[in-house]
Design a protein around this nucleic acid. Structure first.
Lengths: 237, 237
DNA sequence: GGCTAACATTTGTCTAGTTGTATAGTTGAT
DNA sequence: ATCAACTATACAACTAGACAAATGTTAGCC
């Protein structure tokens, strides 16, 4: 029976400390020597734990200076206007997206219903990976009505964000009509893309967004890495 | 006729060595490899002997460090005046304490209630390890009202005992109002500090102490290594 | 003030040693 | 044949200590 190694429980304890706000973002953790005393282990064991946390992008060490908290799990507000890039930029993190697949095909029954189309109508399908500070945060799939937005594929390829691509295609503004949230376990493929372990918790959201006229423009399915994001449903707007 | 197994005779030989004082309490036994050479057997056979001795509480192994002769249990009287250092000194053992963590933070509901404060009031939190003859005996957490004892943190760092630190801060005497005792199993971290194995029995006490005016000054939580201490509730006090 | 030198602190890396665990095989008695 | 005791080997997890490299701090000097 493989018990959980000590270093792992230390990593969990420290991660928890950070999540609890005991060490704030950018703050310096106690030196390794002090931590090893606190946990009653050798310094190397603490280092193993810190290495794990560094790999996950949670802390960052500077030789001679100390170990610093890199980032708390990103808050991801879900309201009327859900904008991945803007949400992250507001927290001082660098957003990026990576296109995994882009195609135009016939809409399924579910997709057609969500977008107010007839089944079989052409839709653009965007599969992408959303990153924060280079760390994968979410897998996103977005379905758009192809007849309404004929040039969207090229725009999605070139623009940095979906919002920007839609703007190029004439959708100046759009708001979210509905968001559904459930919890899942990561499949092998999802785990690979999000760089988490298979079976790790995942937040899955399904959303419908519409332009200012109320015409649906996007049907989205997003899988968030559960331990890197906290979805917040704001009281405002 | 079942001949006595080799491992059993090895256990007897080693037990005898300890009884003869060839290895003192707290001392490190030779590494398993060396012992297996000495007895001319495989390392696993020595391990079988050491496992038996560990089960009897005679020795305790720390991965990567070695096998150590366990300490004899100490009596620990709980009465009106509970003083770790004095208790042990009276038994002719050398007490010591080791600060694991020291911080000031807002009181939880439970802590505030015990100390007669409002939740969120500042408290000093002391996490420490209590040793007898260099052997860890108990993990102690003590919560003090910070507003009443502003300089306690420094005092705790410098003074040898909590009693001494409190005296420096103006608390000449204090008595125990209440002590609750339950049995738990050691968590991984506790086991590491107390140098016992994970899942070993632990005595947990929760206590409230007050000064001569009856004002609570300390809310304590202590975890004793179950096989190293015997709590005694004296008739006297 | 601004500069350098010296010192202490802290992380990075390396080597070596020790216990924990798993797997597979041998031996001998019943 | 079966089972317990023991051997053999390998690797993982953790300890221990030492030193190098980068950083932060302080004192002294111009």
């Amino acid at each position: 029976m493989a018990r959980t190694p000590v270093w792992k429980s230390i990593a969990i304890a420290l991660t928890d400390d950070i999540a609890q706000g005991r060490y704030e973002t950018g703050a310096k953790l106690p030196p390794e020597a002090q931590l090893s005393a606190r946990f009653g282990v050798n310094r190397h064991t603490v280092r193993r734990a810190l290495a794990e946390m560094a790999e996950q992008g949670l802390v960052h060490a500077r030789r001679g200076a100390g170990v610093f908290v890199a980032a708390k799990p990103a808050d991801y507000p879900i309201g009327k206007r859900v904008r991945f890039h803007q949400n992250l930029a507001r927290e001082g993190r660098t957003p990026a997206k990576q296109v995994l697949m882009l195609e135009t095909r016939a809409a399924s029954v579910r997709e057609a219903e969500a977008l107010g189309l007839a089944p079989g109508d052409p839709v653009h399908v965007y599969d992408g990976l959303s990153l924060a500070d280079g760390q994968p945060v979410a897998l996103a799939q977005a379905i758009f009505p192809a007849e309404r937005l004929p040039d969207l594929c090229d725009a999605l390829r070139e623009e940095a964000s979906i919002t920007a691509a839609l703007k190029v295609c004439g959708v100046a503004d759009y708001t979210r009509l509905e968001t559904r949230i459930t919890a899942k376990l990561a499949t092998a493929t999802q785990a690979l893309h999000l760089r988490i372990s298979e079976g790790a918790p995942i937040l899955r959201t399904t959303s419908i967004s519409a332009d200012t006229d109320g015409t649906p423009v996007e049907f989205g399915r997003t899988w968030f890495a559960g331990d890197r994001v906290t979805l917040t449903v704001g009281g405002e707007d």
